[in-house]
Design a protein around this nucleic acid. Structure first.
Lengths: 124, 124
DNA sequence: CAGCATCCTGCGTGATACTG
DNA sequence: CAGTATCACGCAGGATGCTG
C-alpha cells in the first residue's frame, strides 16, 4: 500500500480551513485572543473555564495547537525571556481578519445548534 | 466589543460546530448541496473532483458523514424506494441557513489561505 | 511559569469485499 | 445504485513526570 501523497491539499478552501482549525482548541484560542494578548496560563485557564467539567488540558496538546496556529500565521508568540518565563500570544493581522468568521460561526451556532446559550448572541 | 462578562459557561457554539462538521467531507457536502438535491453517486463524484486526485472515497466514510449530517438536521435523505435504488439528499432549512457560513469560510480562505483558488470566489 | 518527553488509547479514515 | 461488513492503521488527544 505504498501510496505516496503527492497532492497534500486540494483546491478547496474548505479543506485548508478544516486543516487549519483541526484540533479541539484552535478556534477557541483565536476567539479568546480577540480581546488582546494572553499568556500561556491564561489561555489554558480560559479554555478550562466552560470546558467539560474539570478535565485538564494536556500541555502537550495546548502547546501543539499554539505552535500550529503560529505556523499558520494566525497568532504570534512573544517570549519575554525572563525568569520566571513569560510568554504572550496575540493575534496577527491574519488572525484578526479571521475573528469575524468565528463570529459568524458562533452566531449561527447559537441560533441553530445550541440548546442553552441563546443569550450569547446578544453577548457581543 | 466591550464584553465585561465573556464567560458564557461554554455551551461553546464553537465546540458544537466543530463536532458537527468534523469529518473530511461534511462541509463540502453541504456546499455541494446548496445548488439543489443530489444523489449519492453525484455527491461522491463531486467530492472526488478536486479532491487532490487521491484515491476513491470509501463508501463507508461517505455513508457515515451523510448519516451524521442527517442526524444533525442539516440535510434530508429521500429514498425513492425503487430498483435500482435512487436516493437524494437535500439541504434542510437549517442546512440552507448554514450555507452563508461556509461562504464566509470560503471567502476568507480564498483570501488568506493562498491556494490556487482565488477565482473560485467569484465563480461560486 | 511555560513548556517538552514518553506511553497509551479511541476513533476517524482508507481499502476491499459483499448485498438488496 | 446505494449502501453495509470487516480489517487495519495513523494520529489526535489524555495522563504523568520532568526541566530551564
Amino acid at each position: 500500500m505504498a501510496n505516496p501523497k503527492p497532492a497534500p491539499a486540494c483546491g478547496c478552501p474548505v479543506a485548508a480551513f478544516q486543516k487549519m482549525i483541526s484540533g479541539k482548541y484552535k478556534l477557541r484560542i483565536v476567539w479568546d485572543l480577540k480581546d488582546g494578548p494572553r499568556r500561556y496560563g491564561e489561555i489554558r485557564t480560559g479554555l478550562l473555564r466552560g470546558a467539560s467539567g474539570s478535565a485538564e488540558i494536556a500541555p502537550r496538546v495546548l502547546s501543539r495547537e499554539l505552535k500550529a496556529l503560529t505556523e499558520s500565521g494566525l497568532i504570534d508568540r512573544r517570549d519575554y525571556g525572563v525568569v520566571p518565563p513569560k510568554v504572550e500570544y496575540r493575534l496577527t493581522r491574519k488572525g484578526k481578519s479571521f475573528v469575524p468568521v468565528i463570529a459568524a460561526i458562533r452566531n449561527w451556532g447559537a441560533r441553530h445548534l445550541e440548546d442553552n446559550v441563546v443569550e450569547m448572541v446578544a453577548a457581543e
